[in-house]
Computed example of a mutant assay.
Amino acid sequence: MNAMGATGVPEVVTVGLGERSYHILIGKGLIERAGTEIAARLPGVRAAIVTDGNVAAAWLPALTDSLSKAGIETVAITLPPGEKTKSFEHLEQVVDGVLGARLERRDAVIALGGGVIGDLTGFAAGIVRRGMNFVQVPTSLLAQVDSSVGGKTGINTPRGKNLVGVFMQPKLVIADTGTLDTLSEREFRAGYAEVAKYGLIDRPDFFAWLEANWQEVFSGGPARTRAIAVSCQAKADVVARDEFETGDRALLNLGHTFGHALEAATAYDSARLVHGEGVAIGMALAHRFSARMNLASLDDAERVERHLRDVGLPWRMSDVPGELPGAERLLEYISQDKKVSRGALTFILTRGIGQSFIAKDVPASEVLSFLRENLL
């Protein structure tokens, strides 16, 4: 891997989807060359940039300037920050903004922000004029390694997370690692949960590398770029095999079934729990539940918990501030999750570090008693 450094050459990961294949560019200073990269792939395009108030203050001028220099005319649509923005209300705001700017089908909708902005913007791009060009410029670690890659988009409803959306592949992902320097420590840690996830799915050597090098990933430099590139490659490999999540792409949901239930239980209140924190707790619970079902060693569950604790992530339900609903209500949220098929509970469980698998028909009674034990 050639991390972007003195040569100024970005790391490039390809998501191989035939004629719809696209590149993920990873490196510092990429927002400054975004206009050149987009114009090369989408000549003559006009664009709407969708962002949130926090990201706009830090990065919108640089992106707008880069696009302008490349001859790309833009309009900006700025939304409030936070998970609650992934709603029908704000989807309508984006759709109206794109239509109001008289953008055509061949024009582009650009997501500048974290996972919330990327998910919402991609959904809008997928439905306006029955599909426009979509570009991701992720500015959080979580978005760079997970939500910006693979084309899953959507919004939340009171009944659950990401229940309404479309598969919408971007034309390009521009992951400027310099944007991570402006993240809060909490936001960076939350994104790191998704990095660790790739090791726990099927890359045990990567998880061991993270255990040894996580402090360098947090401090920046080559270790951070390597962690992002390995994560993107891991996801790209899975997406190329199973774009529409009919098979092993579901492995990417390790920790998400428990995590999404906790997010719904906190009403998506980011002061209490953000997505990556929910995933961290969910991964710890998935490993502990696997041990309870005699599928994996308790030592592995404790190893996962120890690493999450070392990096400062929550790893048990009692780490969520405030009251959580009872086990029965949490099970209702899990049953509403989109990974349920015909009422049967499906979880990503594990036989050990890097040995995750799709477990179908998991007994609800086992999950309920496990939740009761672990709510303490």
Rank of each mutant, 00 (worst) to 15 (best):
L298G: 10
L298I: 14
L298V: 14
D300T: 05
D300M: 05
A301M: 08
E302N: 15
E302K: 14
R303G: 04
E305S: 13
E305C: 13
H307Q: 13
H307K: 11
L308V: 10
R309A: 13
R309M: 03
R309C: 08
D310Q: 11
D310E: 14
V311H: 01
G312S: 08
L313I: 05
W315K: 00
W315G: 00
M317N: 01
S318L: 01
D319R: 03
V320T: 12
P321A: 12
P321Y: 08
G322T: 09
E323D: 15
E323F: 11
L324T: 07
P325T: 09
G326W: 02
G326P: 02
A327W: 04
A327R: 07
E328H: 13
E328V: 15
R329S: 12
R329C: 08
L331C: 09
L331I: 03
L331T: 02
L331K: 08
E332S: 07
Y333M: 00
I334L: 10
I334E: 00
S335R: 14
S335L: 14
S335W: 06
D337K: 06
D337Q: 11
K339T: 15
V340E: 07
S341W: 15
G343T: 09
A344M: 12
A344S: 11
A344H: 10
A344L: 06
T346S: 13
T346C: 03
F347T: 01
F347Q: 06
L349Q: 03
L349S: 07
T350I: 08
T350Y: 04
R351M: 11
G352T: 09
G352P: 04
G352F: 08
G354Q: 07
Q355A: 10
S356E: 02
S356T: 09
F357N: 05
F357I: 08
F357M: 07
I358E: 06
I358N: 01
A359S: 14
A359C: 06
K360W: 09
K360I: 08
D361P: 05
D361N: 15
D361Q: 14
D361A: 12
D361W: 05
V362P: 12
V362C: 14
V362H: 09
P363L: 02
P363M: 06
P363T: 10
A364V: 06
A364Y: 12
S365W: 04
E366H: 13
E366Q: 13
V367S: 04
L368N: 14
S369H: 00
S369E: 03
R372P: 01
R372N: 03
E373Y: 07
E373G: 10
